[in-house]
């Protein structure tokens, strides 16, 4: 059971029940965008193994440190891990320059799949995202935890193809 409580930590259960930044971003919502700068990109993500499907919407702007995620939302349906991961991801990257969000994903991925003895470094920068550490013990669930991040990457790359965990 202890593994299970490591996996389903309260933060994860909370974000599963009440996901943050849940919904669509539409160009029409962006009256306050700087003209020509706010532009919504989105991509669909799909985990064929369990049927999780989500869409990530990002609104980019040019900030002091390069392109920056001005706003981000997601919608769709999925398991607790994929939903909570999407929710916590949106909180983590909102307002962050793209370079920083990419580094977060690298660290996050390292936390889930990397050598546990070096996790300290990755974990330190991850903040709340470190609650997903327990996923490491459930290898088939790593795809659930990374689906939102792959989808965000697809949205940023402007690829028409949906992201998939396969």
């Amino acid at each position: 059971m202890s593994d299970l409580f490591d996996l389903y930590q309260e933060v994860i259960l909370d974000h599963n029940r009440s996901p943050r930044n849940f919904g669509k971003l539409e160009d029409g919502n962006l009256e306050d965008s700087l003209e020509g700068e706010g532009r919504i990109r989105h991509a669909d993500g799909h985990n064929p193994l369990c049927g999780d499907r989500l869409t990530v919407y990002v609104d980019l702007t040019r900030g002091d440190h390069g392109e920056t995620i001005r706003d981000i939302k997601f919608d769709g349906s999925g398991c607790a891990i994929s939903k909570a991961s999407a929710s916590l991801m949106t909180e983590a990257v909102k307002g962050k320059p793209l370079a920083e969000s990419e580094r977060l994903f690298e660290n996050f991925h390292e936390l889930l799949t990397g050598d546990p003895s070096v996790k300290g470094k990755a974990g330190a920068e991850l903040g709340k995202l470190a609650v997903f550490e327990g996923v490491r013990e459930f290898p088939v669930r790593v795809k659930c935890a990374t689906l939102a991040w792959h989808t965000l990457q697809a949205a940023l790359a402007g690829r028409g193809e949906p992201a998939t965990t396969e």
Binding site: Y8, L49, C50, D52, S77, G78, A80, R141, C144
Partner: peptide
């Protein structure tokens, strides 16, 4: 209600119970 089948599958698995989850 309120629990995705995939999460049911993971929890049951740790109890030694094999079920299928998905479509």
């Amino acid at each position: 209600d309120g629990v995705h089948p995939h999460d049911i599958g993971t929890i049951l698995d740790r109890e030694g119970i094999a079920v299928r989850t998905g479509h």
